[in-house]
Design a protein around this nucleic acid. Structure first.
Lengths: 321, 321
DNA sequence: CTGAAAGCGCTTACAG
DNA sequence: CTGAAAGCGCTTACAG
């Protein structure tokens, strides 16, 4: 009963079970996989040995020899923002239909190297190009979504907010907005791309928008008390703004109009309902998944125009504008 | 250049690359893994061949021979309800620290069999015991969370709402609630366990609660227009109730008090803030993960008392009660 | 710097 | 009903 490796507990393998049960390896396989051509007595003896040794088949040994599904690595920036779980849920369901498993990870959580070792393709929703291990993963199919610039060898999906920004700004100015505030992500030297889209669009209409860092220490209400519209960095920030305004007794959209970005489905529960630049998560998921699976299957070559896709936001006017 | 399998495209293996590059298998390994002891010229020739063949190392072949992290299968009922992503995010982060990857799946998405084939342990948040493949996965470590009854051979984590229900009902009756409505999940013959907890607790205080199926076709406002408190099946339902009441001009908590269940973190954005029976997601994740990894590492035996854990909800009185 | 040999844990034919 | 042999794709010593 004393195994070769005393002290250190090595997981039991099929040969350990075979030895303990006094049979051959292939008989263990028959018992464990419930195959025909084995006597009941033998099967039970083998299963008892398996139980005793806590034997569980190695997925590597098995995967090497049996056809098995492939695994997609899904990297998302921050699972705390419902935006990413919504996206992940859609990717998960679609990938499942295509026979792919999905390993979910955040960049902070797992070393990118370890992560890449266990997957057959990568879909990265982190806002920057996926950086795999320097070596060991040549030709790993990778698709970056919404990365600021295309990474050579990767497929990429661009999320284009510009048309929706135009629509939203036209909508707001038509309703008399003249002193809009754009709440930008804090801690940056320069305005974000989305903030610039808004200031440019407003400027084209003769309206100058103020960009303010969304900072709890210096709330925008103090900086720009006369604002008649707030463009939030994303829906989550907009929800916070709506709450602030409610508590301050400010009417939305009567006194201040509020616009979010993302189109989170939890938005259906807030009152008044948030106007937002919505992304069709299903479309994003389908586009990104189609691309990465296409690369994995050799249908699409990274570097070709077909490996570069685009999804646009859509302005959804609800109750806050 | 014509491989042995013409027509059907079989993924290239290390020997294909070796053949095309005119080197041995181990030289391909050296090039691909950026190891020393290989000339620059050879390395480049090999990498060029790898590129040409779209070669990517099999994770099975590699996993068999290199020490690698293990994979946890995380099964959640419904990624559409933020409750599950919140839980998943916490599990993901903690599992990552322990060196485990996480495959996320919904029961509907992937055949349970396929799912179980690729993982070393399973954590099931589906409200019922995990059912793996009938065969092929003996001694797979499994932990069920919040399953109605313990499944033999599995570890289980019970989520106990009873103490929080007591606190909430005491709170509500102390504030004069006499005609509470419990919104139950629709389409069931008998009231849910949580609905019964509430009716019992109210009854003990001499108050009879009405259980109504949460059904858009027959809204609770029509069924029980005189209700002075609404206990929702979960936070998401409660958010919808809050919106209904707002639109109907009903004051919360002045005219009707509202209670949710779950303690979703998105609740921080709704106004007024929802009172709820909150679950500490971190505690649930830590408890469940500790248990399943303990079973996987042989520290904990399923069936022993230690393989059965309990986490309690906590009543959080916010602005709606 | 390069290759021949052994082996990781498993299953699939093939023999008895 | 059971076992000996071959092989899945890879890496790790070991020889040259």
């Amino acid at each position: 009963m004393a195994g070769p490796a005393r002290g250190v507990t090595r997981p039991a393998t099929i040969v350990d079970v075979a030895r303990v049960a006094g049979v051959s390896r292939q008989t263990v396989t028959r018992a464990v996989n419930d195959m025909p051509g084995i006597s009941t007595a033998t099967r039970e003896r083998v299963l008892a040995a398996a139980r005793e040794l806590h034997y569980h088949p190695s997925r590597f040994g098995r995967g090497l020899v049996k056809p098995s599904g492939r695994t997609l690595g899904l990297l998302v920036a921050d699972l705390t923002n419902p935006y990413y779980p919504e996206l992940a849920a859609t990717v998960l369901r679609m990938a499942g239909e295509a026979g792919w498993d999905v390993v979910l990870a955040e960049p902070s959580t797992s070393g990118a190297g370890d992560f890449a070792a266990g997957v057959d393709a990568v879909l990265s929703f982190t806002g920057r190009p996926f950086v795999g291990p320097a070596a060991g993963a040549p030709n790993l199919p990778v698709v970056d979504v919404d990365a600021p610039e295309p990474s050579p060898g990767h497929g990429h999906v661009t999320l284009d907010m510009a048309p929706a920004v135009e629509d939203a700004v036209a909508h707001l100015t038509a309703r008399g907005v003249r002193r809009p505030v754009v709440l930008d992500r804090p801690g940056r030297a320069t305005p974000s791309a989305r903030a610039e889209l808004f200031t440019t669009a407003f400027a084209r209409r003769g309206t100058s928008a103020v960009v303010v860092a969304h900072d709890v220490a210096a709330p925008w209400t103090a900086t720009t008390p006369t604002a008649d519209a707030v463009v939030a960095f994303n829906d989550l920030v907009a929800f916070g703004v709506l709450r602030e305004l409610r508590l301050a007794g400010v009417e939305v959209p009567g006194q201040v109009r509020v616009l979010g970005i993302d189109g989170l489905s939890v938005g259906r529960y807030v009152t008044p309902r948030l106007s937002t630049l919505a992304l069709d998560m299903t479309e994003v998921a389908r586009t990104a998944l189609d691309l990465v699976l296409g690369i994995a299957d050799g249908r699409t070559a990274p570097g070709t125009p077909d490996a570069s896709r685009r999804v646009v936001h859509r302005f959804v006017a609800a109750e806050t504008t």
